[in-house]
Each structure stands twice: as structure tokens, then as C-alpha cells.
Write a protein that binds this DNA or RNA. Structure first.
Lengths: 150, 150
DNA sequence: TTAGATGCAAACGGTTTGCAAACCA
DNA sequence: TGGTTTGCAAACCGTTTGCATCTAA
């Protein structure tokens, strides 16, 4: 059963403002607004949606700030089932995978040693060497009504 | 060890023209040109690159034809490591995964029961039900020079 | 004081769409 | 022939960039 899987649902996000400052970036009003909004989000978000929620912040700044957090590893960019992609706060610092709810967009993270073990088994069977991998699970989280009303 | 993994390197692509006709689409010169070019390709390709190789075919037609094959399941759209995406012919008819060479872009398919088994194990541990999944392996295929000269 | 950050608007890359002309069945 | 498909160009979407202005440190 539950050998080495760990869900991150309960993990509090690290302070995005700390991420900013430890990266040598300034703490400005637009960045603080974005950071505090992101820290409230359970679901994945698009840059566009974020921008809509912060009409006082310029679109370019939203994109620049997202990229800044991306580079710092504070958020992840992940694929949705339809091929587009969304961003999500990273609670876990290291390599992990995501579940994305196909109904409401809620994103969760998990680490499962079984996944990594599988990859290394596959590497024996596959020509060439495995440099990296990407795994996304699309789920129906069954808690959608609370989040998205659907 | 090698229990149920199957690589698709040698599998001949099914005739894309058949795919067209069985889908009730017409066999036109542009579509035939695209189909025959695709059937020669080992590596993944972008719509843009395809269009460059077929200057006599309009860009819109390239995109339309790609989507047509996508809908028919004859080609797959898959992610590259840098977040962009490429297309690749599907030899295997059913659910499978891809390896993408980070050097030359060569794409291969594999089916591994172990992957599917892992997913169903994970489903016991993960809140909600797993609807679908996506797994991409990024590899260094070590045959790059032959394909891309690099 | 000044390097860094912002907002705007324009540019961008990839993709889709409207439409009249061309084409296959 | 008539419904499909094509090519073009313009529109589109998400994202990045140039630049003058503003601001945190």
C-alpha cells in the first residue's frame, strides 16, 4: 500500500516574498499583490486569469513576475489535458509530480518513490539514456463544488 | 527485467491516406504531400518545420491537416522539455508513451505495462480518481549524428 | 542617487479563421 | 455539379520586448 507516496495538500507554501528577496529582487507593490494572491490559490492558474484578478498590475509585470518565481522554483509550469498549460505554487522543493483536476483545475503535488524507481527500471529497456521525465496525472478531485462551483 | 515493455522503433506507420479516407476526407495533393512526408519522419516535427519542407502547401493547410490526423489519432502532440511541443506519427494504435531525444528530437514510442500498473497503484493513494495521465521521457538517443548531424 | 521595476503598446511566434477561388468525387 | 479543400491574409492568443517613467534601497 502506502509505501513512499507523499501528497502535499497540507503543506504551506513558502513565503514568496522571501523567495523574491533571497533572489536579490525588490519587494514592490505589484509583486506583493501577485505573491499574496498566489499564496491563496489551490488551483492552477493561467497568467491571463491572474492578470484579470489584478487589474491594477500590468500584464507584462504579471508575466515577468511569474517567470521570476518560475526561475526560483517557487512555482511550476504544468500541462493540462488539452495541451495548454497552467502554473501552480510548489510546496515541495524538489522533484515531484502533479495531479490536475480536469473539472476544477485544482493542482496537487506528490512524490512517489515508485515513480522514480519505475523510471530507472525503464532506462534498462529503452535505447539511450533517460535525461529527465515528466508525469502528470489528470484526476477528478471530487471536491470541485467548493472551489469552482461545478 | 524486460517484462512487458515494447518499443515501436520498427513498427511501420499505418497509411495516413487510409486514415484520411476512412475518416471521410478527400485525398488531395496537399494532403498526400504531407502524408508522404510524415511517413518518412523518425523525429518529431513542428508544424512550422513541416511547412518549410513543403513550400507549395499553404501554412493553414498544414495546420488543418495536422489537426485532422491528430483527431484521427494518427499522430500525437507531445511536449518537449522546454515547454514547446512537437508532433509525431503514432505507430501504436492505443495508449502509449514517448521518448524524445533532447539532442536531435527523435521520438520513439513505448508501451510498458509497468507504467500502467504503477498508475493504478497510485490511484489508491491519491485523492479523487485518476482520469488520464501523461508521461514523457526525455532521453539522449546516442544516434543523433545520423539524423541531425549533431 | 541609481539600478531595478513598472506600464504601456507594439512585436512576437504559433495557430486559427473568413473568404473567394480551386478542386475532388 | 456541389460540397470540400485550398491559399492568402488578417485575426487571434499567449507571451515577450523596447522604452520612458517611476521607485525601492
Amino acid at each position: 500500500m502506502s509505501e513512499s507516496i507523499s501528497m502535499a495538500s497540507e503543506a504551506p507554501s513558502p513565503s514568496l516574498l522571501e523567495v523574491l528577496e533571497s533572489g536579490g529582487h525588490r519587494s514592490t507593490a505589484p509583486r506583493r499583490a501577485i505573491a499574496s494572491l498566489l499564496e491563496k490559490k489551490q488551483e492552477g492558474f493561467s497568467a491571463d486569469a491572474l492578470s484579470d484578478e489584478l487589474p491594477s498590475v500590468g500584464r507584462a509585470t504579471v508575466y515577468r513576475t511569474i517567470n521570476l518565481f518560475l526561475e526560483a522554483g517557487a512555482i511550476c509550469k504544468l500541462a493540462t489535458m488539452n495541451g495548454s498549460h497552467i502554473y501552480s505554487i510548489c510546496g515541495v522543493g524538489h522533484h515531484h509530480h502533479h495531479t490536475v483536476c480536469v473539472e476544477c483545475g485544482a493542482v496537487d503535488e506528490f512524490r512517489a518513490d515508485a515513480v522514480e524507481r519505475l523510471i530507472s527500471e525503464l532506462s534498462a529497456e529503452i535505447p539511450g539514456e533517460i535525461v529527465s521525465h515528466r508525469l502528470e496525472l489528470f484526476v477528478n478531485c471530487h471536491s470541485c463544488p467548493e472551489i469552482a462551483g461545478g
